[in-house]
């Protein structure tokens, strides 16, 4: 169903109702049973990235009963397209709704007002921001104010050190909004593997006497976040742009090497005196990580599944969490301080 004018919210809401009714009748379902769990708001402004974003948004929305509102600023569509889909849920019939709105020529105030009108009240509103600017965009700030969770990828469209600095400021400006960065979320398997080294009580002490950190990664954000996470967990202080200082005052150089696929970490090396802890992608299978401990407390090489989490699953995870993550936030602030 289509509505020509993006400002005619009455017509959009009526078309939503009609769409739901038509699908419900087709499936012999109760049209009132559209049990939306969340408002899922997606902003996209890059035509080359658009399909990628929308495909993943649709996958999430088709799994979680939601009202998906796509704010498409790429000039690909005009007006408003409305669809209702039936979710596969065993005995029950659940409906999920989608509203695609062409907003390339719509002002920020109108966009924000439109979202308020179209959102289902009293359920979370997750904003997946895939726009080029962050705090400098009044649309971003306005939509964030009404959101419970903001999700973005500082290793994707919004890249680089500047994005991470802005995210640091985001925490101050929007203390009630949960911020989730896919670049941090995709580090979970690496964090787990690094932690694994030191689950062994005999190696635990080395964690508190590390002397160097090297991370190879295809994008800066992942390497910085991993260093920030390690530094914040171990209460390190900043000692310049490429070094930390531990609680005993020892300087720990941090080397970031640009290597491997984009958005992927390739290896992490931790040194503690003569001991070297290395987690690196296996040459045999890039979905497996070789974990080795060399030096006085050497251990046999072990293999761990990388469990690289696809972006759709990461988005789901952020949605399900739906709360501020203090581990992420302290890691982010550590990186912000490291960047100066």
């Amino acid at each position: 169903m289509h509505v020509d004018s993006v400002s005619d919210t009455k017509a959009i809401l009526e078309q939503l109702r009609q769409s739901r009714l038509a699908v419900a009748v087709d499936h012999k379902a109760n049209p009132a049973a559209s049990a939306a769990m969340l408002n899922f708001l997606v902003f996209v402004d890059d035509p080359t990235h658009r399909e990628w974003v929308l495909e993943r948004a649709a996958r999430v929305a088709n799994k979680h009963p939601s009202r998906l509102i796509v704010l498409d600023s790429t000039s690909t569509i005009s007006g408003v397209d409305i669809t209702t889909v039936v979710l596969d849920s065993g005995d029950s019939v659940l409906l999920s709704e989608r509203v695609d709105i062409g907003v390339a020529t719509t002002g920020h105030a109108a966009i924000i007002s439109l979202v308020q009108e179209l959102s289902v009240p009293d359920i979370p509103l997750v904003l997946w921001w895939s726009g080029g600017r962050l705090l400098a965009s009044r649309t971003f700030s306005g939509l964030t104010q009404g959101a419970t969770t903001v999700l973005l990828d500082s290793s994707g469209k919004v890249r680089g050190e500047e994005a991470i600095r802005e995210l640091g400021e985001f925490l101050t400006r929007f203390p009630n909004v949960a911020l989730q960065d896919l670049a941090f979320l995709r580090l979970a398997p690496w964090q787990d593997m690094i932690a694994q080294f030191f689950d062994d009580p005999a190696l635990r002490e080395d964690l508190f006497s590390l002397t160097a950190l090297e991370i190879e990664s295809g994008s800066a954000a992942e390497a910085l976040y991993l260093a920030g996470w390690l530094g914040s967990r171990l209460s390190w202080e900043i000692a310049g742009r490429e070094a930390f200082r531990d609680r005993s005052g020892r300087t720990i150089p941090f080397t970031k090497i640009d290597k491997g696929d984009q958005r992927r970490v390739a290896s992490v090396v931790l040194r503690a005196g003569e001991a070297t802890y290395r987690a690196a992608l296996s040459a045999e299978d890039s979905n497996v990580v070789e974990l080795s401990v060399d030096g006085p407390k050497a251990r046999p090489i072990k293999y761990a599944p990388l469990r690289n989490i696809d972006n759709t699953s990461l988005i789901e995870r952020a949605i399900i969490e739906n709360r501020r993550d203090p581990i992420f936030e302290t890691s982010l602030l550590t990186v912000r301080d490291l960047l100066g």
Partner: peptide, 13 residues
């Protein structure tokens, strides 16, 4: 810090 100290990297994982 001893071997008996908890692994601080496990927090939140």
């Amino acid at each position: 810090i001893t071997a008996a100290s908890p692994n601080p990297l496990r927090a939140g994982l």
